[in-house]
Simulated scan of single mutants.
Amino acid sequence: MNAILNAVAAIGRWAISSLQSAGALAIFAVEGLVNIVLPPFYPRLFGRAMLSMGFLSLPVVALTAIFAGMVIALQSYTGFARFAAQSQTATIVALSVTRELGPVLAALMMAGRAGAAMAAELGTMRVTDQIDALQTLSTKPMKYLVAPRLLAGIVAMPLLVVVADILGILGGFIVCTVKLGFNGPAYIHDSFAALAPGDVTLGLAKGIVFGFVIALSGCFHGYRSRGGAEGVGSATTSAVVMASVLVLALDYVMTEVFFTR
């Protein structure tokens, strides 16, 4: 009996802790959004965040996208060959990249790179009392540290999605024309013919949501970091894990809403 009660108590503590964390994250997100739209603004900090999250994430996003496009082309061709439908490879590559692979892979790469960096930076500032020093100087940390990063995530992520879409389709084109013997102009025509405006705009909409989620997760865990170097490391890990899980979950939700109605 005691074992059952202890198990129930443990589940209850976990549920309460999860609800508290979810509530704190929601409050943090709302406060961050409010600080994005209200003055004062810090364009220099926004530019630095854009450089870190956008430009410096380009190499890893580009490599991931182009190899993903190559793999999808090979796998699609192999599968369609069983039904003598190899001509549909261009369609599958274009739709897979623009709807799913471009936004999701770009987001996961940004979460692992920029999200971790934000959590580590803000966590270090927290444990070394730099955030408290900002408050002492009458500077709002949410406005100065968090809002520029959230805005940069919202702006940078769709741009990375565009790059991932282009390079993913390019990767499929290279494999299909060089290795599988497709006609280049015909492949390009089939790729564009397969795409509807909604396919591209949904990918960009996912990019906006994913960028906000990644920046929010990195800032949230870094801002609340405690316990010295160990706490910073824990916050960095938690930021990447939360961002990755939320990206995949929100990807399903948005796909369900826009493509199954």
Results as ranks from 00 to 15, higher is better:
G23H: 12
L25N: 09
I27A: 15
I27C: 13
A29T: 13
A29C: 08
V30M: 10
E31D: 15
E31V: 04
G32F: 02
V34H: 08
V34A: 14
N35G: 02
I36Q: 10
I36V: 11
V37K: 13
L38I: 10
P39K: 03
P40A: 01
P40W: 00
F41N: 15
Y42S: 07
P43G: 00
P43K: 07
G47R: 01
G47F: 13
R48T: 00
M53Y: 13
M53I: 07
G54S: 04
F55C: 09
L56A: 10
P59K: 01
V61H: 01
L63K: 13
T64Q: 11
T64R: 14
I66N: 07
F67Y: 14
F67I: 04
F67P: 05
A68K: 11
A68I: 00
A68R: 12
G69D: 08
V71F: 07
I72G: 05
I72S: 09
L74I: 07
Q75F: 11
S76N: 05
S76G: 05
Y77K: 11
Y77M: 02
F80T: 04
R82M: 04
F83T: 12
Q88G: 15
Q88N: 14
T89N: 07
A90L: 07
T91E: 05
T91K: 05
I92F: 11
I92C: 03
V93N: 08
A94E: 09
A94S: 14
A94G: 10
A94C: 04
L95I: 13
L95A: 01
T98D: 06
R99Q: 02
R99V: 04
E100G: 01
